[in-house]
Amino acid sequence: MKFSTKEDLEIPIDDVFQLLSDFDGFERAILRHGADVSRTDKLTSNGVGMSWKARAEVRGKNRQFEVKLVEYDRPNQMLFDVKTNNMAATFLVELVAMSRTRTRMRIELDVKPQTLSARLIMQSAKLARNTLNRRYKTRIAHFASDLEERHKKGLRTTGA
């Protein structure tokens, strides 16, 4: 099942990529929301091969995730592989400069079941596809407006 949406940001492409590649900041945010995340690679700078293990409650059950950064094309895109016990997903963040101060961000999530029970879950999710799409687009829109607010406040990250 694939979810995709795009948002236009009033931020230059390099600044958007900088904000999106603040992995330490995202780790702290995940921890603040009650999940557990830890970095599993030994890389000293951002790039292909970065990986994390995470644990979070999803739909009432404690789930474990393995995330690996498989593409890192500054400032154009990042691609992550995500694996759980019964699902695999790819998470793509793609940026296109619309002008010097405007960037289009496309975020795509493609989830694939790996077990029979996961296929059953996906079948019921397909019945609620419109609701799930609406929620996905709303969350990405909120995320985009948060990025713009962070940028306006000058909370740009360094070292990405």
Rank of each mutant, 00 (worst) to 15 (best):
Q77I: 05
S117C: 03
K42S: 11
L31N: 10
G25A: 10
M122K: 13
A88K: 13
F80S: 07
E27W: 03
G49F: 05
V111Q: 00
H151K: 09
T90D: 07
A125N: 05
D81Q: 15
A144L: 07
N46E: 10
F65K: 01
K42A: 07
R102H: 04
V93E: 05
V111P: 00
F26P: 02
T40A: 08
V96W: 02
E57F: 10
T158H: 13
T103Y: 00
G49D: 11
R119P: 01
A97M: 02
S4C: 10
T90A: 06
R59I: 06
K126S: 07
R106K: 14
R59W: 08
A97S: 07
K2W: 05
R74P: 09
E71C: 07
A118Y: 00
M50S: 02
M1E: 07
F80K: 07
S51I: 06
T84L: 04
K126A: 07
K53M: 10
G47V: 04
T101G: 08
D14L: 11
K6G: 03
R74F: 05
F17W: 12
T44R: 14
G159C: 08
R100N: 13
R39P: 02
D81H: 14
A118L: 01
D8T: 04
N46K: 09
D22V: 06
R28Q: 14
A35R: 02
N86H: 11
V37H: 07
T101P: 02
E7K: 04
G159Y: 09
Q77K: 12
T101C: 03
T158I: 13
G34S: 12
T138F: 05
I11M: 00
V37Q: 01
E149K: 13
V93D: 11
